[in-house]
Write a protein that binds this DNA or RNA. Sequence first.
DNA 1: CCTTGAACCTGCGGGC
DNA 2: TGCCCGCAGGTTCAAG
Length: 279
Amino acid sequence: MPELPEVETVCRGLRPVVTGQVIARVAVRRRDLRHPFPAGLKRHLESRRMMSITRRAKYILIHLDNGYVLVIHLGMSGRLVLYPASYKPKTHDHFILYLADGRQIVLNDARRFGLVDLVAVDDLDSHGLFSHLGPEPLSRNFSGAVLGRALAGRTAAIKQAIMDQRLVVGVGNIYASEALFQAGIDPQIPAGMLRPAQCAALAGSIKKVLQQAIKAGGSTLRDHRQATGEQGYFQHHFMVYDRAGAPCPRCSSGGCEQARIVRIIQGGRASFYCPACQK
DNA sequence: CCTTGAACCTGCGGGC
DNA sequence: TGCCCGCAGGTTCAAG
């Protein structure tokens, strides 16, 4: 479900609430999600102060005052929402942090592809969850040149390549299609075939679409909620994602023949693009 | 190392 | 109404 903009939106919503607050109590309502919850999870969290909240790739990182970091991944269907003290747990509410004032940070994840872990802050970079991750797309470490180097020699389709978290993090199925549309690149061409100018355009469109989506609070297809419980709004700005059969926004605006958005399957995932203007 | 496909799990909408 | 199928924002693992 959540790609970088959705995770970033959750972090931004939680940050003013979480920072400086003490975790009074923790409820662990089942033994595992994708992996078993770490041993001693409650013990390491209860009575600890949350010092800051950050994001790496699609992971939410809550830094504690005991040198540990609470790591949360939302998988496909996860939500992390702040509720008032009166909230009663519902189905698929697996993990709850109760603040001193009674408010609750609730992790709900119907499909349970999400993950909760506890990592010593000094071990973050070397930890198996993070050691293989590529650059943050919104940082200066990511550029057309960096992308071009990462794509060199690869035969996989460019759509699948930019979703590979080793090359660049945060891009998932929605924003891969949207970024390729903005850059005018056919999602099926082999990654290593992109020319430098195309790499520059694609790096730029990845940054742009992720930033625009963050501004809109992410995209709510079904599960995504901001930390406030509010939906995201970027789904109303999709150019191609989930728009098979619709006229291409770029070709149509030219007043020429109306090309239509096409849906194809790549690596088992749906891709959307305009065959007329994405080459 | 790279690429591909399957697996993990629940819920929802469409077709019959 | 009910059942079956396909589909959904991610990651990981095995096999070629």
